[in-house]
């Protein structure tokens, strides 16, 4: 009984840090919630105000088109919420005040969870707005696959957060962390995926790529789930001067649900643990 109490008492600093971190980041929360609502309203409502912009046939297709920006929102939110989570303690020297008061593992866990709740809240708001308009246009019940999509969006945003946290653990400056993680997540992974697909075609699935794993958010809305997951497009013809030929290029649409989930979890746990270890080792 006593051990149990000690255990919970030991957890209270984490809980207080979560609450404090959520309060600390509330301006970012307001901003991203507004952006999230605006984008969701724009995609699911404002566009529908144009009569000739046809509503999707099904609720799932409606959600799928509405979710086209979710990866951007989650990506920016993760970068802005998590880039300073560790390096700001060193860069802004706030660690001098906090480190002697709370165990570093508890501090990072509290800060991580606090920010995580906020980004998950932002994603949730986006899905709620989308779900509300989906309900408005198509009536109930809400397609169950939107919940699956939500689960993957949450997993994806947690993976992104862990990834950015890892960078924050060894970078010196918050702004540079934001820029570098944005470049990697927005461009780096996509460029790498294209090169890998170009070289290896269907023999190598770009499972290392967070951007690729994020495709599950919309793929899971499709009924049936995309199969085959590697698609090849080909085109050909004769150009001016009789030049011509046959061209084809392939693309991986989505990872499988099992593999995607597993790798997202690997990203989440791996990056966070590594970040926590680096944070513990780092000296101010």
């Amino acid at each position: 009984m006593r051990n149990e109490n000690d255990f919970f008492i030991g957890l209270t600093p984490i809980f207080h840090t979560i609450i404090f971190e959520m309060k600390k980041q509330r301006k970012k929360l307001y901003f991203f919630t507004m952006v999230s609502i605006l984008v969701a309203v724009l995609l699911s409502y404002i566009l529908q105000l144009f009569p000739d912009y046809l509503l999707a046939d099904t609720q799932a297709e409606f959600f799928s088109s509405g979710l086209s920006f979710i990866s951007f929102i989650t990506l920016f939110a993760a970068c802005l919420f998590f880039s300073g989570i560790i390096c700001s303690e060193f860069n802004k020297r706030t660690g001098f005040i906090v480190f002697p008061k709370i165990n570093k593992y508890k501090l990072i866990l509290g800060k991580y969870l606090g920010n995580l709740f906020l980004v998950i809240f932002i994603v949730t708001v986006y899905y709620i707005v989308l779900g509300l308009f989906g309900f408005f246009y198509y009536g109930g019940p809400i397609n169950i696959r939107i919940f699956y999509s939500y689960v993957f969006a949450v997993l994806y945003v947690i993976a992104l957060s862990s990834f950015v946290t890892l960078f924050s653990s060894f970078m010196k400056n918050v702004n540079i962390t934001i820029i570098i993680t944005l470049i990697i997540l927005l461009m780096g992974f996509n460029i790498a995926d294209q090169i890998v697909t170009l070289i290896y075609a269907d023999t190598f699935e770009p499972l290392y790529s967070l951007a690729y794993l994020g495709n599950l958010i919309t793929s899971v809305l499709e009924n049936p789930f995309p199969d085959p997951r590697y698609v090849e497009y080909s085109f050909g013809g004769i150009g001016p001067g009789g030049m011509g030929g046959h061209f084809s290029f392939g693309t991986w649409i989505t990872p499988s649900i099992f593999m995607g989930t597993t790798l997202l979890l690997v990203y989440i746990i791996g990056c966070f643990l590594l970040a926590a270890l680096l944070f513990k080792r780092r000296q101010l």
Binding site: P13, T17, K24, R93, T94, K101
Partner: peptide, 20 residues
């Protein structure tokens, strides 16, 4: 060293420090 705080109110900071 020279103290650097998170940009919160004095009350919020002290409350947090007291709690942890």
């Amino acid at each position: 060293d020279i103290p650097n705080f998170y940009n919160m109110t004095a009350y919020q900071l002290l409350k947090y420090f007291g709690k942890i």
